[in-house]
Design a protein around this nucleic acid. Sequence first.
DNA 1: GTCCAGGTCGCGC
DNA 2: GCGCGACATGGA
Length: 303
Amino acid sequence: MNSSLHTTHLTESPTALFDFETTATAHGWVALRPFEWDATAQALRRTQQLSSGQVVRLTMTADDSSEAEVHITIDSAAPLSATEEDEARRAVRRMLRLEEDFSDFYRLYQQYSDWSLQLKPGEGRLLRCPTLFEDIIYTLCTTNINWRGTIRMVDRLVAALGESVPGQAEWRAFPTAEAIIEAGADFLKRETGLGYRSGYVWELAAAVTEGRLDLGAFERPDYPTATLRRDLRQLKGVGDYAAATILMLLGRYEHLAIDSELRLFVTKKYFEGETPTEAQIRELYAPWGQWQYLAYWFDTPAP
DNA sequence: GTCCAGGTCGCGC
DNA sequence: GCGCGACATGGA
């Protein structure tokens, strides 16, 4: 323990029924640095650089009995300003989707008794990063690579370019867009194993820092999903799969992210080993309308 | 060596 | 619109 660190305790409340552990662990993001799941403590941790430049370490937990509250512990080198504290709260709310409403999804789930989804009350939320910028880069790192490769690339990206909490070299944040720009695409390719994705990541960071791309606009609820999807597809490296994944991260579940993993899953469960066409796959989950992505995600595998 | 991974791009038709 | 090869990298 480093006694020079400041500790701040906060609580946040979800607006609806909430399962903390599933939210943290139900998809792969938790395995990507700087996320960390502490199974013993049932704690989700992430080092994060705030807009002020200060790097903090967030630890999130929730009581077993009361899903009503998320406890946040923030370790920082300097005391948090009110602005920083507010940003940390917003980061947690975004990561855990505390404001999202899944009641329509649950209603459909009750109604579709012939489907075998594995879904308990309060489940449905999938972890995301504090910012869309980070979520998009994670997504780019899942394309045309196996999962170990994704973990490795993100790990090296954080190690190479992430700022750390002063005196805590192992508490390293995800790199800012500015840090990525400064490093350059060649550095990315050489030092992070991003391969040909280096150009995509660098271009995204450039568009953000130069103000050509306003990712904040993509978070607006009144942005029509079709427009959003079209705009996401404009980003280099974002195809149909990545766009659907990013839409999921933005809380829009009406598009399936059809990839090798999904294909394998439905081939085994619904098509008796015969590889289906994309149209057949879409038709399969179509009854779930706005919730197709989650219907697939929480679908149980073939026995 | 070859193939492929929770794909996408740019080309030619 | 559709089909096809190239793309970085590391593991099987």
